[in-house]
Design a protein around this nucleic acid. Sequence first.
DNA 1: TCATAGTTGTTAGAGCCTCTAACACCAGCA
DNA 2: TGCTGGTGTTAGAGGCTCTAACAACTATGA
Lengths: 245, 245
Amino acid sequence: MPAGPTANPMRARFRRQVRDDVKRVALGQLATGGPQAISLNAIARELGVSGPALYRYVAGRDELLTALVVDAYDDLRDALAGALEAGAPPASARAARPVTRVARAYRQWALAQPHRYDLLFKPPIPGYDAHADERATAARSLMGVLLAASTASVPGGASAPDAEPGGAPPAYSHDAVLAERGSGSARFGLAVSVWSCLHGVASLECGGSFAAMRLDADALFEREVQVLEERIARSGPGSAAPSPG
Amino acid sequence: MPAGPTANPMRARFRRQVRDDVKRVALGQLATGGPQAISLNAIARELGVSGPALYRYVAGRDELLTALVVDAYDDLRDALAGALEAGAPPASARAARPVTRVARAYRQWALAQPHRYDLLFKPPIPGYDAHADERATAARSLMGVLLAASTASVPGGASAPDAEPGGAPPAYSHDAVLAERGSGSARFGLAVSVWSCLHGVASLECGGSFAAMRLDADALFEREVQVLEERIARSGPGSAAPSPG
DNA sequence: TCATAGTTGTTAGAGCCTCTAACACCAGCA
DNA sequence: TGCTGGTGTTAGAGGCTCTAACAACTATGA
């Protein structure tokens, strides 16, 4: 595997595309057989190439896994951002509130690819936190959208620091997320609470726990989102409960 | 591996103990290296026996994994039940409310063994739901304790169908859990909400998401539990929001 | 035009894993 | 004494990850 980025731009593009192919096949394996089913050998076979060739493009199985995690975070973030923008002010008045929209998108994303979703929350191996930084960065990026959504759902507090004139809720930039956390604002705490709640419901449903009890997951989810929105409404711009952090 | 239970009771006891040894070593591997680190070969080595010998006691790696899952559910349930009983009426008046006690025990159990906790919520492999029944039964058993705790935390609604005269909150029996779900009661819905919330926070913390953002997980958790208790208090015995089911 | 350096593929193989097959041993019992 | 069932062994098939050594191809500069 070449150390740095190849000088030749054609080569660079080629390398990028092969890497994407590898990840695409890996995603398929992940979907059908879980993380255990991801095998570099099998990927190579499917790509019509023989075994060790892949090591020119991927450092190893672990590196591939973390790449999948980072991609998943980004993909989920984009999905949520899309749902958030889809109902921004110049939209139908009947559009659901921001957090509700984002929550539904979150659940749908998780349900559509449960193993990929599950991958995001695997506990790290103690004493071996490889790639922890990349994961953390991607997670903060996701938090940015949740932060924007929670802020937009607070009645009277819809406009955030860098809101655009058009009124669309801003997807918080990475730096803004850091600043918001640092300030220990209630906004950030609320966003974390939203994430916890969404993750709890989505993860249990993905894991099959609801199905095992024959629960109506749709109704359950909608009720939780409703509770969440009420909680956000209660914690209006006046209340200033300090956020942990 | 012998098909049925061995006739000889000495043999049976021995078999059970060896199986426990296997699971004990597997738990160690799980704690230090995650599920991927669980290896029958390595377990055999550690037990001073050679490879295939373990197949006399364990059908295979998958079966061992599900056994670990079921055991974990039972262990977690016992921990929660202990926390629930620890503050039952003939206890200090300063004891926290039932759901708060159970919530703290839940979090501590998960944090003490993150990979074991994570194991409980792995999405099943599509089209291959081996041992789904055992898992579901164990999960319902866990729900029983959460149901008892939620019920006990509702002001004025502390006594449950089969409450003991002493006033100790009952750990719902398996049948009672099924009946309660079937009735579509608000109690059951509340218990599921409690579980979702607890799982959301515990899972995110186990996965390192909070640490990645330098959040104060203690404060965050306590606040969520507080919100949960308030929600339970609001949904007093009067309100009868139907539960999904 | 040709040599050279860098990139990308190949096969061979070490070492791990799961799990099966075939065989040896040993206790209890008719 | 010989049989049976439980338990261990080794051998081995087939999979995996990943490294090493080598062949081929490509772009570039003399």
